[in-house]
Amino acid sequence: MERKVQSKQNSKKRNVKEGSRFIQQKRKELAILVDKVLKLTSIFQATGTTNKNWEHHLQIEELIKEIINIEKPLIKKEQIERKLNIEKYVSWLNENGAQFEGVQITEFDGYEFGLKATKEFTEGSLILTVPCKVMMSENNAKESDLSPYINVDPLLQNMPNITLALFLLYEKSNPDSFWKPYIDILPEKYPTVLYYTSDELAELRPSPTFESSLKLYRSIARQYAYFYIKIHTLGIPVLKNLQDIFTFENYR
Rank of each mutant, 00 (worst) to 15 (best):
T106V: 05
Y195C: 09
E138C: 05
N139V: 12
A221Y: 07
G124L: 03
V34H: 01
Y190S: 13
S207W: 09
E188Q: 12
I23Q: 13
I162G: 02
L201S: 00
F108R: 02
G110L: 02
H56G: 02
Y228F: 15
F178H: 06
R3H: 07
A117E: 04
V34I: 12
E29G: 07
Y228N: 02
K52C: 02
E120K: 12
N15L: 12
E71L: 00
E29F: 10
I68R: 11
Q223C: 08
G19Y: 05
F121C: 02
P175Q: 10
N174W: 10
E120P: 00
N158D: 14
L214D: 08
K83A: 08
F210V: 03
Q24V: 11
N10C: 10
V5G: 02
N250I: 01
Y226G: 03
L214Y: 08
G110T: 05
P154A: 02
S213E: 03
Y228K: 03
K76Q: 14
I60V: 10
E95W: 09
I80Y: 02
P191S: 10
N174A: 08
L93E: 03
A46T: 09
A221I: 07
I229F: 11
N174D: 15
P181S: 05
S91Q: 12
L234Q: 11
I185K: 00
L156M: 05
D199P: 02
L201H: 03
S212R: 09
T129N: 10
I23L: 14
S137T: 15
F22M: 13
V34E: 01
T106F: 10
A141K: 01
R82I: 15
F227A: 00
S91T: 14
V193D: 05
A221M: 07
P191Q: 09
L128G: 05
E123R: 10
L216G: 01
Y217D: 09
N51F: 06
E29D: 14
F227P: 02
I68V: 15
I229R: 14
K8L: 15
Y190E: 15
I60T: 07
Q9N: 13
K12C: 04
N96P: 04
I64P: 00
